[in-house]
């Protein structure tokens, strides 16, 4: 069972990632604005939005039910759990009994389940359609995600995320081609999960990832936005923690932890900037044809698996 230091570290890590979430989404918005030749609202706008929403009244349609009401708490809570269990400041996870590849996949599924169910439970047709699309996207992403993580897990011989990250960070040369391709494939799924073009447009409410948000308002909406923002940060950190564990603390010494605390936001910023640049140089794709694009990701993952089998 975890000792006290690890629990403190886990909570601190969760809180820091949570606090960074609106900043990162704000950066994404600014990048989009600049690439559209607009000035944009400033990177702190999402904090202001949240503060405003928390003060407003919570209004919901009469037909909305219990799941609609509970979903913001469940989603934010589960995402926070994932944020605590990721390897972020340290090589290994502070909560090793949670940081399992399979457990993570199904905790993400829990979030998706409640997110889409809340869309249907709102009684809005838009919410329902958004829910269906969100789940469809999950179906397209899940196999790629599992396969790409599986390749590195097989290389390291464990499904524990911290152990995978520690093993990979130490030595890329054990299977360079397989690890490289797996990273590309996983980055592809992270990009989709972050709600980016050409798959999605996270800021437009009639779109997929925020479709189920149609009927949320006030504090519930704030919690939902916070939860989804945290999801993006967690996905980015998932990629960093497993495939690119640079600059993290090798021990629990204060100095190395401080260094890691500085490196973490910078690395996240790099991921969000890169994702923003790619996103905004794309056109919106037709939803029903998404599966043609996601095959590319699955192909990458399958290729990396083949490289793993041949030992490259």
């Amino acid at each position: 069972m975890p000792n006290l230091t690890m629990i403190v570290l886990a909570v601190a890590q969760g809180v820091i990632l949570l606090l960074l979430a609106p900043l990162m989404t704000g950066v994404s918005r600014m990048i989009r604005a600049r690439m559209h030749s607009r000035r944009g609202p400033g990177v702190l706008q999402d904090y202001r939005d949240l503060a405003k929403l928390f003060k407003r009244q919570d209004v919901a349609p009469a037909v909305s039910g219990g799941v609609f009401r509970a979903a913001p708490y469940v989603i934010l809570g589960t995402m926070f759990l994932l944020a605590m269990a990721l390897p972020a400041f340290t090589r290994t996870s502070p909560l090793p009994f949670l940081a399992d590849l399979i457990t993570f996949a199904y905790l993400f599924a829990l979030v998706r389940f409640f997110f889409s169910l809340s869309g249907i439970d709102s009684g809005s047709a838009f919410g329902g359609l958004g829910a269906g699309r969100e789940l469809t996207l999950g179906i397209l992403v899940e196999p790629t995600m599992i396969l790409s993580l599986l390749v590195v897990a097989l290389i390291e011989g464990t499904t524990n995320l911290g152990a995978i990250g520690a093993g990979i960070g130490g030595n890329y040369l054990q299977a360079p081609a397989a690890i490289g391709l797996a990273m590309l494939a996983f980055a592809f799924t992270v990009f989709i999960e972050m709600g980016k073009l050409p798959f999605d447009m996270a800021e437009a409410e009639q779109e997929l990832q925020e479709g189920p948000l149609t009927e949320y308002s006030g504090p519930s909406l704030a919690l939902m936005k916070l939860g989804l923002g945290l999801k993006k940060v967690v996905m980015a950190q998932f990629l960093l923690g497993v495939f690119l564990p640079f600059g993290v603390a090798a021990s629990l010494a204060p100095a190395s932890l401080a260094l890691a605390a500085v490196a973490l936001p910078l690395k996240l910023l790099a991921v969000f900037t890169l994702a923003g640049l790619i996103e905004n140089s794309m056109a919106r794709g037709r939803f029903l044809l998404t599966s043609r694009v996601t095959w590319v990701g699955f192909g990458l993952a399958a290729l990396s698996f083949v490289f793993y089998l041949t030992g490259l």
């Binding site: 037909v63 039910g65 799941v67 609609f68 996949a105 199904y106 599924a109 998706r112 389940f113 889409s116 169910l117 249907i120 439970d121 009684g123 329902g128 829910a131 269906g132 789940l135 469809t136 999950g138 179906i139 992403v141 899940e142 196999p143």
Partner: peptide, 19 residues
């Protein structure tokens, strides 16, 4: 697993939610 999520969100949602 991903397909099951869609399947049962649908089963619960269509039966118990909305009007």
């Amino acid at each position: 697993g991903a397909l099951a999520a869609l399947c049962f969100v649908k089963a619960w949602g269509m039966t118990f939610s909305g009007q």
